[in-house]
């Protein structure tokens, strides 16, 4: 099992209110599995993704990624663990604005303590694979949305992670670009990786093997998606 969440809960509190963002959620994702999480805004999808990614410690429950509990690690060990095992793709792309496409793709390599030549070789290969070869020296501001998301995908895959977490990766893309990104995610899963996709996009759900609907922080429905390969 690559990702295992057992009875995970997360509550946000402030002076006026308490929000149960995720409540008693259990979820397992195996290698080669593409899982889509759907639900209305504020249902806790992104919180679940952050918990799964070792970025947000749950108030209750356990998280295991590749049989290791990231929250039992020190923050720096957890960061290194993230760099090696998990890739992130965000709706807003979150590319570093002053780095070129190639440098953005290479950035996680620094975190994973890889050698420069190895990083560069992998990054160049990814630019080819994602059709960014002629844009590799451009900064994100010079790219289209599709190119940015492809660059973000390439960055997420640099360290050859086992788990890919994608938060609305098609939210800012047109149909064609969204399709490309979803195909890439499917390809990643097909190659033995695990994908957890958080989305509103029905097209995205169609690429998943399993769909989960989250309602008020709880899993309402979990089912196999008919369109899944």
């Amino acid at each position: 099992m690559l990702l295992q969440l057992d009875s995970v809960s997360k509550t946000y509190k402030d002076a006026h209110s308490t929000v149960h963002a995720v409540e008693d959620v259990s979820l397992q994702i195996s290698e080669g599995e593409f899982v889509a999480v759907q639900g209305p805004s504020g249902c806790g999808k992104s919180t679940l993704l952050l918990i799964a990614g070792g970025l947000l410690k749950p108030d209750a429950g356990t998280v295991k990624v590749d049989d290791q509990d990231p929250y039992s690690m020190t923050p720096d060990s957890r960061a290194e663990f993230r760099a090696q095992k998990i890739g992130f793709v965000f709706q807003q792309f979150h590319l570093v604005p002053y780095l070129s496409v190639l440098e953005n793709i290479m950035a996680p390599g620094m975190a994973a303590n890889c050698t420069s030549s190895e990083i560069r070789e992998r990054a160049l290969h990814l630019t080819e694979r994602f059709g960014l070869a002629d844009r590799r020296h451009h900064v994100p501001a010079k790219l289209s949305s599709g190119e940015r998301q492809r660059a973000a995908m390439a960055r997420a895959l640099l360290n050859q992670p086992k788990l890919l977490l994608a938060d609305e990766p098609t939210g800012n893309l047109d149909h064609e670009n969204a399709e490309t990104v979803l195909n890439d995610l499917s390809e990643f899963a097909a190659n033995g990786g695990a994908v957890l996709l958080v989305t509103h996009d029905e097209r995205a759900v169609a690429h998943a093997q399993r769909g989960i609907i989250l309602q008020d922080g709880k899993i309402a429905t979990a089912s196999a998606v008919s369109g899944a390969e």
């Binding site: 290194e80 590319l95 975190a111 360290n159």
Partner: peptide, 16 residues
């Protein structure tokens, strides 16, 4: 802030 958040998310250690 955002840039550092991303770098932290993709695995940069605090000392980096």
């Amino acid at each position: 802030t955002e840039e550092i958040g991303i770098l932290r998310a993709i695995g940069f250690k605090s000392k980096q």
